[in-house]
């Protein structure tokens, strides 16, 4: 009975979600049909997308996606590594915290994109610059979450470790880090969407390849179809990444 009710509810939810997508498509169709100068129709856009994939002029759509993706990949993983290490050091060593925290708090509110001018002057307009910007965007939430996860740990676990006779190293590796792991993952999740946003922004300013670059070029050439395609890909990939992340989280952090 309740099971049937659950099923009904699920089916209803699916229908409503489908309706919402349909509504957008209908509106899009109406607007583009009435004002073709504003945007191409959904079907035309789709055609254009196939064209870009199968028969590209110059850099193909997949090359753009791959370029953005590679940057995110490199920057995100190095930021995770560095961010968790620094975050743990923050949470663990009072001396380190007292020394670095003021600097960190000073730099933290600066939006990653505001670093672009400095980074371009220092590193030029090559790959390093874009990776550096994405790195900054991903690094900050990971440090903050790791650190606050350690601070928020229920002191009962520390007591339990102390009574068992754990030394400082065991306390850190076997109690404090596992206890903060959900927070660390939450930071990594925020960082992942930040990275994706940052790579687009960076590419809009300094790049010859990538989805951000594609958007800007399309804007300059007034190609609305390409702009829409880029936007779909940006949001689609972002959704895909967070979906994959959630799946991964359920595997590595099942509690």
């Amino acid at each position: 009975m309740t099971n049937d009710g659950e099923k009904m509810k699920k089916a209803l939810c699916a229908v409503i979600s489908l309706l919402s997508v349909l509504t957008i498509l209908v509106f899009w169709y109406m607007i583009s049909w009435k004002n073709p100068e504003l945007m191409p129709t959904p079907v035309e856009t789709l055609k254009q997308m196939f064209e870009m994939i199968v028969n590209p002029t110059g850099v193909s759509l997949f090359e753009h996606v791959a370029a953005s993706f590679t940057r995110v990949f490199i920057a995100y993983f190095s930021a995770t590594l560095a961010g968790v290490l620094i975050g743990v050091a923050f949470g663990w060593s009072e001396i380190f915290r007292d020394f670095v925290h003021p600097i960190f708090e000073l730099l933290r509110p600066i939006p990653p994109i505001a670093w672009i001018p400095i980074i371009v002057i220092w590193f030029g307009i090559g790959e390093v610059s874009k990776i550096a910007i994405v790195f900054i965007g991903a690094f900050v939430p990971i440090v903050v979450n790791t650190y606050s996860g350690m601070m928020q740990m229920d002191p009962i676990y520390e007591k339990a470790g102390k009574v068992i006779g754990a030394n400082r190293k065991e306390m850190l590796l076997e109690i404090v880090i596992p206890a903060s792991f959900p927070h660390i993952l939450a930071g990594m999740k925020t960082a992942l969407s930040q990275s994706w946003a940052c790579v687009i922004a960076a590419e809009m300013i300094v790049a010859q390849k990538g989805l951000g670059y594609l958007i800007v070029r399309s804007m300059e050439s007034g190609n609305m179809g390409n702009i829409l395609i880029s936007i779909f890909f940006i949001s689609g990939i972002s959704a895909l990444l967070s979906y994959l992340f959630n799946k991964l989280e359920a595997i590595i952090c099942p509690w």
Binding site: I175, P178, A179, C253, W255
Partner: peptide, 8 residues
């Protein structure tokens, strides 16, 4: 308070 480690 309960002190079972939630990650184990």
């Amino acid at each position: 308070e309960s002190s079972a480690f939630p990650w184990l």
